[in-house]
Write a protein that binds this DNA or RNA. Sequence first.
DNA 1: CGTAGGATTGAGAAATATCAATAAGTGTGG
DNA 2: CCACACTTATTGATATTTCTCAATCCTACG
Lengths: 245, 245
Amino acid sequence: MDDQSSCLVTKLSHYITLDETHREQLASLEKAERDFEEGVEIYQNGDAARDLYVVKRGWLFSYTDLPDGRRQIVKIHHPGDIIGFPDVALKHMTTTLRTSEAVTLCPFPKSSLDVILRESPRLSALLLSIGLRDQVVFIDLLRAMGRMKAQERVAYMVLDLIARLRITNRRMTDTIRLPLTQSQIGDYLGLTNVYISRTLIKMEEDGYIQRIGDRLRILREDDLADMTDFNNRYADMDTSWFPEN
Amino acid sequence: MDDQSSCLVTKLSHYITLDETHREQLASLEKAERDFEEGVEIYQNGDAARDLYVVKRGWLFSYTDLPDGRRQIVKIHHPGDIIGFPDVALKHMTTTLRTSEAVTLCPFPKSSLDVILRESPRLSALLLSIGLRDQVVFIDLLRAMGRMKAQERVAYMVLDLIARLRITNRRMTDTIRLPLTQSQIGDYLGLTNVYISRTLIKMEEDGYIQRIGDRLRILREDDLADMTDFNNRYADMDTSWFPEN
DNA sequence: CGTAGGATTGAGAAATATCAATAAGTGTGG
DNA sequence: CCACACTTATTGATATTTCTCAATCCTACG
């Protein structure tokens, strides 16, 4: 597998400059990429934690269910994301992974981390930082779920999605594709599909957003950011303390 | 500073066996320990992210506020915890740290991580795993906040606290001290102080818990675990893939 | 013994859920 | 290109959960 097609190299290059050695190390970790249809489950809560995945194409999400059927979607995954990282710490997967549309994933085994930790302190620092930054992002989401009203939560979700898409796509405009049903948005934000419907309608009436098919246009991004006291964690990473190589 | 008094060594020994080299590496990282009174703020949201702290004694919590004053407590810290780890990834602290009672902390600089990453792949793997496991814990809390009712959230909080206290204190009974006001519990669970009061009374009436001063006795732990579909993440860490040294 | 912070209680209001019906899309087979 | 089946979105009516505000009660402590 050459550098061109290594998902990990692409992902990590967004944060630090990788030299040739790093690129080779990373590229060697990956297994062959795999395609999946829309609406399939790739692994389930409770499966042995074995592989990680880098998303090459398409959207997916991870969720957990309560015994009575209530569902919480925990993370929405985009191209460039590493899926399954938190579960590295545990013996079993803690979520179920499901595709929102057709996707391509690059799997690599959890044991690859061992290689990285032994061979490159710098890459290790980067992986650690990505994990910890994701933790901050979860804390932000927690704040939204604990203390924000429906409209603010929707605003937060949209801003977070845009900020993340802009990591890999610099000239993102104000319009995003949102391949999620309102039930799924509700499961992500701790609300019902019905209330998501009403909230989106209200936000459109108030001129915050505009909906065109499965696309969403942000009309007053600054106002939404104020409303949610939004911080772009993806732009604030501190790589200054990383070891040299 | 000898091993006896190194907070980090004590903390990390709960997970893997540390040889003499590891112990020395870790002990050398720590600065002198510091005491703080009850009700003081040790650092604030927005401060430069410079130090981490290991808790030697006492309870504290981290929180963030919304501009209009709504507050979300994000983490309750006990003896043995590492505080400020997620902020390592960023240039600034994302929360404010406040004591619930008199505490003793062992600070060590963020730059110590550089040393660990360069010198010990095994310790690096452990730190990474602790960070990632904490992420899973946040995901569990997110699920509670998004999809559980007040009583279930309280149950979840109590079970999580007990599980954590049992890491360091093996023969923990069914009774814990809870040095938090009902307003703080509310800020943690995304509810109001008033509703916490009513919920605790209800749970006591139903025989789930018993309150004696600032102590809480769990009467039907299994039922509470069923109610919240509780998983003890602290007992399920996978250290099998860690590098040798 | 007075005071202050915390807990409890009551009444009413707001936010969100639930249930059920209808409308609007969307893809498929003919 | 049409008609059917199916999923998704919207709407209305009502129920539930939780919040808000204000009063009162406790309890620890100077």
